[in-house]
Write a protein that binds this DNA or RNA. Structure first.
Lengths: 198, 198
DNA sequence: TTTTTATTCAATAAAATTGTTGAATAAAAA
DNA sequence: TTTTTATTCAACAATTTTATTGAATAAAAA
């Protein structure tokens, strides 16, 4: 660990994030990461000692950034519907820049161990679930298990972007058009989520 | 390639599928696969020559099996709603036994190349999309881009199972209860899909 | 029984990747 | 200027994983 901060350590992490989360190269080597970061491979070991520790650092940072952003949305004093709208915008932007992030988290969680998850699922998520339950009582959204409402929201939001490489082939859509499709889903998701069915 | 079929080749592929798709060990070595299959590692090379070719074979077989099953559902002469119900059941069963399958396909598609996708997205999917459009005309489902209806269905179905390891932590639910939750979503998904909102 | 075939086994080669080290360098700080 | 610090560089060791090979074995087929 260096005494003054030249940004190299962070730059290595950011590059690793880009390769892993944006490009989806889940088997990236330290060499590939170093090259992409424009540093010598020694620097990677200098800062992180081992590949595993770099991966773990990236994992933790991504996890914290993600839950922080979501928590901020969920804790904001906005009315429920606007809160959900912001949640969708924030998450959609994130998914567009880092479509493989969730996939990475899910496939690495077993090898890295759950202790790296930190304070995921504390406070904000819990109170947001209660808020969902309250809205159901009010009748503004369809009654169901609050967890299901939560998962529906993120399903409709995430899945099409996670599976983009497959669905682009399935539907023969190029990258640009597919992204437009994904962004266009925003309004539709709000409709599905907020207009009580039956 | 052996002249008589002793089932070993298939057993190796099946074991690889289990390790990759059920256990989610995306970095599995040929040794791990051979051990789990109860064969010598030589056998793996005897049948597949290289790890890459084994992975490719597994990929192709999984891809074909998946699209065949889906095509069968989509082509069946059932009324639309029952067709969708079958689709959900078939896919849900598959997701429960192989939760990492889609993740694997999506992360390997870049390294392996799209030529392995075969005849994905031909005939059945296209005619199913037309059927969806027709149902929208009939008013039995909400009007939207047919592709969005399709993606909504699979989003609501797949995402909670793909993300299970993460969401089990987030909601502090054990594996058994989480699976019950996932199965219980079936009816709710049908409701969301079929009851026109607004 | 003889032959064929599938598979194992051991040994080893080849390749890829990671991790280590100590000296060299260049820039910033003192 | 001297010192410190971050980083590079080259060389190499260690480890892991993959791939090859040829002989051995055991069962099935002829």
């Amino acid at each position: 660990m260096p005494l003054k901060d030249t940004g190299t350590e962070q730059s290595i992490k950011d590059t690793a994030k880009h390769i892993l989360f944006a490009e989806g190269k889940l088997h990236a080597t330290t060499q590939e990461i170093a090259d992409a970061a424009g540093v010598n491979r020694s620097a990677v070991h200098y800062y992180f000692r081992s590949r595993d520790q770099l991966i773990a650092a990236v994992f933790v940072e991504a996890m914290n950034a993600l839950s922080e952003r979501l928590d901020q949305c969920m804790e904001s004093p906005l009315p429920f519907r606007e809160k959900v709208e912001r949640l969708i915008s924030v998450f959609l932007d994130d998914m567009i820049s880092y479509p493989y992030q969730e996939t990475f988290l899910v496939t690495e969680i077993n090898t890295l161990g759950k202790h790296l998850l930190g304070n995921l699922g504390t406070g904000p998520v819990h109170s947001f679930l209660e808020e969902i339950a309250a809205e159901m009582e009010r009748g503004s959204i369809q009654k169901m298990e609050p967890i299901n409402f939560f998962m529906n929201l993120f399903s409709l939001l995430s899945y099409p972007l996670i599976m983009a490489p497959l669905y682009r082939e399935l539907f023969q859509i190029n990258e640009k058009n597919y992204q437009e499709l994904a962004i266009g889903r925003k309004k539709m998701i709000l409709n599905m989520i907020f207009n009580p069915f039956q």
